[in-house]
Amino acid sequence: MPQQDRAYATREAILLAAAEEFDRLGYDRTSLTAVLARAGLTKGAFYFHFPSKEAVAAALIERQGELWAEVRETWRARGADPLTALHGMFVESADRMAADVVLRAGVRLNADREIGYPGVPSTHVMWEKLIGTYLADAADRGHLLPGVDPEAVARTLCGAALGARLISSATTSCADFPDRIREVLGHVLPCVATAGWKLPGSQSASEGPIRP
C-alpha cells in the first residue's frame, strides 16, 4: 500500500475508533487510551495525525457539518418543492445517522459542547431557522394551509427531532431514529400542508408531489 494510502487509512481508523468511543461515552468520559486500543495503534501513530483528543473531536464535528451541507445541496439540485425537500432532508439525515457512527459522534459532540443557548445547542437553533425558510417558501407557493405559521411549524419539527434523537440515542444507539423521524413527519406535515401536497411515498400512481 502506498504511504499516502496508509496514512489515510490510519487517520480514518483513528476517526472511526474515536467516534465509536465518543458515541458510547461522550467526550469527557472517552480516554485517548481507549481510542488507541480500539484502533490498534500506538501513541506515535496517533500523534502523527492529531495533536490531541480535542483535535479528533474537531475533525468529527467538521465532517458532520460538511455532510449536512452535502445533503442540503443534493436536495436543492433535485428541484423538489420545499415540503418534499424538507421531508427528504429529514429522512436522509436520520437514515445516515443510524448507519454511520462517525456522523453520529460528530452530531453528539457538536451538540454536547456548545454553550450559546442554555440547554439547547446553537446548531439546533440554526436548523430551526433553516427549516423555517423552507416552510416560508412553501407558504409563499400556497403549499401550507391558511393561518399556518411557518416559524411555529419549524419549532415543532426541530423540537420533535431533537427529542427523538436524544431518546433514540439513549435507548437504541439511534437504530430507531429513522422510524421516529418518519413518525414525526407523518403526523406534522399532512396537518399543515394543502390537499394538493402528498407525503412522499403516500401518493397514488397517478399523483406526484407539487413541483415548483
Rank of each mutant, 00 (worst) to 15 (best):
T42A: 13
G65W: 02
M89G: 14
T30M: 03
G40P: 08
G79C: 02
P82N: 08
T84H: 05
A55M: 00
L41Q: 06
E54I: 03
Y47W: 10
L36T: 05
R38S: 13
L25T: 10
V35A: 03
F48I: 12
E73F: 02
L32K: 05
E92P: 00
A58M: 01
T33L: 12
F22C: 03
T84R: 03
V56Q: 00
A55T: 01
R24W: 07
K43D: 14
A85R: 08
A39F: 05
S52M: 05
E73S: 07
A39S: 11
A94H: 12
M89V: 14
E73W: 03
T84C: 04
V71F: 10
E21S: 10
F48M: 15
L41M: 08
A39W: 03
S31R: 11
S31N: 08
L86M: 09
I61Q: 08
R78E: 15
L60V: 01
E21L: 10
A34I: 00
E70W: 06
L83T: 04
F48E: 15
R78K: 15
F22P: 01
A37G: 11
R29D: 15
R72G: 13
A94M: 11
K43G: 14
E54M: 04
K43C: 11
R24C: 09
H87E: 08
E70C: 11
R29E: 14
R76N: 05
A77K: 05
E70N: 11
E70D: 14
T74E: 15
E62Q: 13
V71N: 06
G79I: 02
G79T: 01
R38Q: 12
A55K: 01
T74P: 00
M89E: 15
A34H: 09
R78P: 05
R24M: 09
W68L: 14
L83S: 03
H49N: 12
W68A: 14
G44K: 11
T30P: 00
V91C: 14
G65N: 10
F22N: 04
L86R: 02
L60W: 01
A57H: 00
Y27S: 02
L41R: 07
F90G: 12
I61K: 07
A55I: 02
L60M: 02
S93R: 13
G88L: 14
L86F: 04
A55Q: 00
L41H: 01
L60I: 03
G79H: 05
F46Q: 09
E73L: 07
Y27C: 01
T84S: 09
D28T: 12
G44D: 15
R24I: 06
A55G: 01
R76M: 01
S52Y: 03
E66I: 09
S31E: 13
A58E: 04
D28K: 10
T42I: 09
R76H: 07
M89Y: 10
L36M: 05
L25D: 12
T74K: 11
L86T: 06
A69D: 15
A39L: 08
E62C: 07
R38Y: 09
V56T: 01
A59I: 03
Q64Y: 10
G26I: 06
S31F: 04
T74C: 04
F50Y: 12
R72L: 14
A94W: 11
E62T: 13
L86A: 06
Q64W: 07
E54K: 04
A77W: 00
A77P: 05
S52N: 07
S52G: 08
L41V: 00
R24L: 15
R78G: 09
G79R: 02
F22E: 03
L67G: 00
A37R: 15
L86S: 06
